[in-house]
Computed example of a mutant assay.
Amino acid sequence: MKARMLTGASLAAVLALPVAAEAAGTLSAGPIKVRDYNMTVLGTDSGAKDTLTVMFNRTSGKSTQQHMYSFDSGVKVTKTSMKGSLGRYGAVNLKLGTVRKTKGRVPAGCTGRAGSARSGTFTGSFRLVADTTYFRTVTAKKLPGVGITGGSIKCSGDGGTGGDGGGGGAGGEPMLTHTKMDGAAMFTFTARRGGQTAMQMEDQAATAPARIMHMISGGGQGLTVGGGGATATAKGISPDLSGTGVFTGEGAAGNVVPGTLGGDLRARFDSIGAINIAGDAMLMNP
Rank of each mutant, 00 (worst) to 15 (best):
G195K: 00
I212C: 03
R193A: 15
H178M: 14
Q196D: 05
Q200Y: 13
L176N: 00
G194T: 15
A206S: 09
A184C: 09
G219M: 11
M175H: 06
F189H: 03
Q200W: 15
M186A: 11
G219E: 10
K180C: 08
G219C: 02
S217A: 14
M186W: 02
L176M: 00
D182Q: 13
A206D: 09
M215Y: 04
Q204P: 13
M201N: 09
D182Y: 14
M175S: 11
H214T: 06
M181L: 10
A198C: 04
G220L: 07
K180Q: 13
R211T: 13
I216W: 08
A184E: 09
T188H: 01
S217Q: 15
Q204R: 10
G194Y: 11
A206V: 14
G219H: 04
D182N: 11
M186E: 10
A205R: 09
Q200C: 07
L176Y: 03
H214K: 04
G220N: 05
R192S: 14
G194M: 13
G218M: 02
M199T: 14
M215L: 14
D203E: 01
I212K: 01
H214R: 07
Q200R: 13
G183C: 01
R211D: 08
M181K: 15
A208I: 05
A208V: 07
G183H: 00
A208E: 08
T179E: 14
S217F: 12
I216V: 08
G194P: 03
T207P: 07
E202H: 09
D182E: 14
T190D: 07
M175N: 06
A210V: 05
A210L: 04
A184I: 04
M199P: 03
A184D: 14
A205M: 13
K180A: 10
M199R: 15
I212E: 02
A205I: 07
A205G: 12
Q196K: 02
G218E: 01
A185M: 04
A191M: 03
A205S: 09
A184P: 02
R192E: 15
T207E: 08
A205F: 12
M186P: 04
I216H: 02
Q204I: 11
G220A: 01
A205D: 11
Q204S: 12
A208G: 06
A198T: 03
G219R: 11
M181Q: 13
A191G: 00
R211K: 14
T188I: 09
R211M: 12
M175W: 08
H178K: 02
A184G: 04
A185C: 03
T197F: 03
F187H: 07
M175E: 10
Q196A: 05
T197H: 08
A210I: 05
A191I: 00
T179Q: 14
S217E: 12
A185Q: 02
F189L: 05
Q196M: 06
R211Q: 12
G220E: 02
A198M: 03
G183T: 01
H178E: 07
G183F: 00
A198W: 04
M215F: 04
M213F: 09
I216T: 05
D203C: 01
T197G: 03
G218V: 01
G195N: 02
Q204V: 11
A208S: 12
H178L: 11
R192C: 06
T197E: 12
I216E: 05
Q200D: 09
T207I: 05
A208C: 07
S217T: 12
Q200L: 15
R192P: 02
D182P: 00
